[in-house]
Amino acid sequence: MMTIFDKIKWILGVLMIFVLIITTNLIDKDNFTRVKDTVINIYEDRLIAKDLIFKISNKINVKEVAIISKNVDYFKKQKNNANKELDNLLLNFEQTNLTIEEAGVFNNLKSQINTLKKIEETNLNNNINSNKAYLNLIKQIEDSLINLSEIQVREGGRLMSVSKKALSTIELFTQIEIYFLVFLAIIVQLIIIYNPNKKLTSKKNN
């Protein structure tokens, strides 16, 4: 029959293991969450944003070709649909997780594109040959798109760095857990084996 002291030893041993499991699980959960969030952010806020920038750039390039080639048909029949598609792309980009720097560049881009559409509605409808201001504005838009694209690369790299650090932490704690479990197993065995009653009995016999 187990004595109260034996029960306390077993309870202490079980509690030590329980505390270790809970602690390591919480640490691992936090690190896995960081890795998961990083992967999601790279996809949703960087790869998708990069794709949107590419599509916006294509729309702007079509406008540039149309004005250089004096394509009257584009500005009379196609530009309205093209501008609606452009607005949708801008809206989708705005819904990604923008950094402070990115938001500033993006707001400037929207302003430039709005100005471009106003020129299309006024000057170009009357005289498609008045293209200097239009082409200058397209160059500014292209520069803004390049800036946004470079931000995606930098932010993607930063997120990858965060992910690597989290994975390194998980690996480190996994190794620590193994050593600590071995150490804890030895301590638990010593607690269970230790019996002060035997020492007292041996002293009395002597």
Rank of each mutant, 00 (worst) to 15 (best):
Y43E: 08
I8F: 10
N25Y: 08
G104W: 00
K164W: 08
K164Q: 15
K59A: 08
N114K: 10
K117L: 13
L15G: 11
K198E: 13
Y179M: 11
N58P: 08
E85Q: 14
D73S: 13
A103C: 07
N88R: 03
L172C: 02
D51R: 11
W10A: 01
S69T: 09
L90W: 01
N83V: 01
I8P: 06
Y194D: 04
L12E: 06
Q175K: 14
I176Q: 04
L109Y: 04
T33D: 14
I178C: 03
Y194G: 07
M1F: 13
K63R: 14
K79M: 04
N31C: 13
I68P: 00
L145M: 06
L167F: 02
L52G: 00
L91I: 05
S57A: 10
N108E: 07
A49R: 02
N129M: 08
N88I: 03
L148T: 00
V39Y: 13
F180M: 14
E155N: 14
T174H: 05
E64G: 01
A66E: 05
I170K: 11
S161T: 10
N61L: 09
G156M: 02
I100D: 15
I191R: 02
T23R: 10
I56N: 00
I60H: 04
V188M: 04
I187T: 07
L184D: 02
N126M: 07
A66F: 00
N136Y: 08
K164F: 11
T169R: 09
I178S: 05
K198R: 14
A166K: 06
R158Y: 06
I68M: 07
L184W: 08
L184N: 13
T96K: 09
N83H: 11
D51S: 13
N114G: 05
N125Q: 11
N125W: 01
G13V: 04
K132A: 12
S57D: 15
M1G: 15
I178Y: 10
Y134V: 00
L181Q: 11
K203G: 01
K50D: 14
V65N: 12
F106W: 04
K9M: 07
V39R: 12
K110L: 03
E150G: 08
L200S: 12
I60E: 00
I138W: 00
N97F: 15
K199C: 03
S144I: 00
I53K: 07
R158H: 04
E150D: 11
I146M: 10
E171G: 03
D37W: 03
L116V: 04
T201K: 14
K118T: 03
